[in-house]
Design a protein around this nucleic acid. Sequence first.
DNA 1: ATGGTAGCGGGGCTA
Length: 261
Amino acid sequence: MFTIATWNINSVRLREALVSRLLTEETPNILCLQEIKTPIEKFPAEAFAALGYRYLVARGQKGYNGVAILSKLPLEDAGDRDYASLGHARHVAATLENGVTIHNFYVPAGGDIPDREQNVKFGQKLDFLTEMRDAFHADNPSKSIMVGDLNIAPREDDVWSHKQLLKIVSHTPIEVEHLGAAQDAGKWVDITRQDIPSGLLYSWWSYRAKDWDAADKGRRLDHIWATPDIANAGHASRILRPVRGWEQPSDHVPVLASFDL
DNA sequence: ATGGTAGCGGGGCTA
């Protein structure tokens, strides 16, 4: 059995102590981070190794993006892909000794205007998702887990107001359709929703709210998926809402799942 | 329709 967590940390150097706190309190076997916002040379690997997380497979860049897989279990680097040819560090993969492959994604946010004619970033987001679809279709993945900040809340109960967010980037029908096509192409099972099939679920609350907890205008942007051959081994999904209330928090909270493998 | 906050890096971009 192992537990995997995914967390958009919004600068791993600024929030090194928060990562250490999560690792100490929850002791996931594997932690996937997004938006580490640093080149790998400056990733605080020693601090996490001291807590038992000796394995690191990561891709970084200066100032923006960046993804990392931290693990207590041995990992082998399984490569990365520059989806939509953006030149951004938004994907990395690693393989465990049991043969399970882990994909860690940071899908582009897509800007504010949900129209590729008016907003290049929105087009890049859709193109990124289309290339994910094509890659999964070609790959036909098995024994795989894919996690990350997908920057899309696909279901009505993944947002505080479906109606009010229909034209807001992250919940528009075209994004949901593109994400669904990528999910279908890999036959990915949404493990969080397999475990918690109904009810409001959020993993992100904007920094701009006066009182994020009281307003509770959240979205479920962070996901854990698995291929059908191992999906029934997934269980015990959790989203750690209280982490949003830690001092100087990320705007995202960790999402966890365990696998009996 | 707008503005609200945060991080990086030291101005403006990105979220």
